Amino acid sequence: MHALICGSLAYDNIMVFPDRFKHHILPEQIHILNVSFLVPEMRREFGGCAGNIAYNLKLLGGSPLIMATVGDDAGPYLERLDRQELPRTHVREVSGSFTAQAFITTDLDDNQITAFHPGAMSFSHLNKVAEASGVSLGIVAPDGREGMLQHARDFAAAGIPFIFDPGQGLPMFSAAELLDFLDLADYACFNDYEAKLACDRTGMRIEQLAQRLDALIVTKGAQGSEIHHQGGCTHIPSIAATAIVDPTGCGDAYRAGLLYGIMNDWDWTRTGRIAALMGSYKIASRGPQNHAPSRAEIGERYFREFNERIW
């Protein structure tokens, strides 16, 4: 059976400015800001939450299906999906649009100026969950607003359990819409900031939100994660990475572990551990899809960390 991953496919264009923004932005002239930065270093990464989650789930031996929208410039990404043997049956090409992409400029102090163009992502509502077959679990990851609302309703109508993962898209939704998502979903996953924002917006404590779900997961970076389930809370420690290189995509790697554990009927401790392990692999590699441990390597490292065989 497949996991249907509804979310974005995107290009991340990352540029490095070999100076500091503060040397070129004059506070007293901010009302007429007109600056240009020479960025001799640039790289393009394959990203987007759906692509990142599917990539990591494939590493674990799972069977992901991506449901996403891309534009006329998607050729290199589609070719990559083919090389990775990730089906693109439900990747819709929207003519006359660009694939979603971020333009990120970083200075020597790690300050960032980012512009994000949603492009074809804005048409994600054209994809319907009912078009996919053999699906036993889903996830609604950051995507176009209408698409996220539609896919949550589609999963619920089809009786397919799913994870609600709003990510940076959470501010798009009202309190009533967030509560509706939680009532439709079986699971939800927030990072610590998103969890606080959800609580502030709904006026409810995290424990109250968790009561609407089978499980609510809150990730806290180096402090590990918490899985709220049946009135209790399981703490999952973080796993020390071999290097701290780039956090981009760590949350998506973690979510792939959640999907894998749920699909294989693992308990929440084991599920949280494999999720944390995937996050530790990702943070040691630059870019969201450049780490490539084999399934055997993942199993051996899990055994070294927890003295338990998982396959």
Rank of each mutant, 00 (worst) to 15 (best):
D143C: 10
H228F: 13
A141L: 12
H235V: 11
I163V: 14
H151Q: 10
Y260R: 05
M204R: 14
P166H: 14
F173V: 07
S174V: 00
A188I: 09
G249V: 03
G147A: 08
M204Y: 09
T242M: 15
E226N: 06
F181E: 10
A130V: 07
A130K: 11
F162A: 06
R255G: 11
S174I: 04
L209N: 09
G144D: 04
E131H: 13
H229T: 09
A130C: 03
M263S: 06
I239E: 07
A253P: 07
P237L: 00
G249F: 03
R205M: 11
P142K: 13
S238P: 01
L213R: 11
C233W: 00
A215W: 05
G159Y: 12
V135C: 10
F155W: 03
D265S: 06
A175S: 15
S124K: 01
Y260F: 15
Q211L: 13
A215G: 11
A222C: 05
P161W: 09
A132C: 15
A198I: 14
G138M: 06
G232F: 01
E131K: 10
G224V: 01
L179N: 10
A158E: 04
F123Q: 02
F155A: 04
G147Y: 04
A141P: 04
H125A: 12
V245R: 02
A256V: 02
L170I: 10
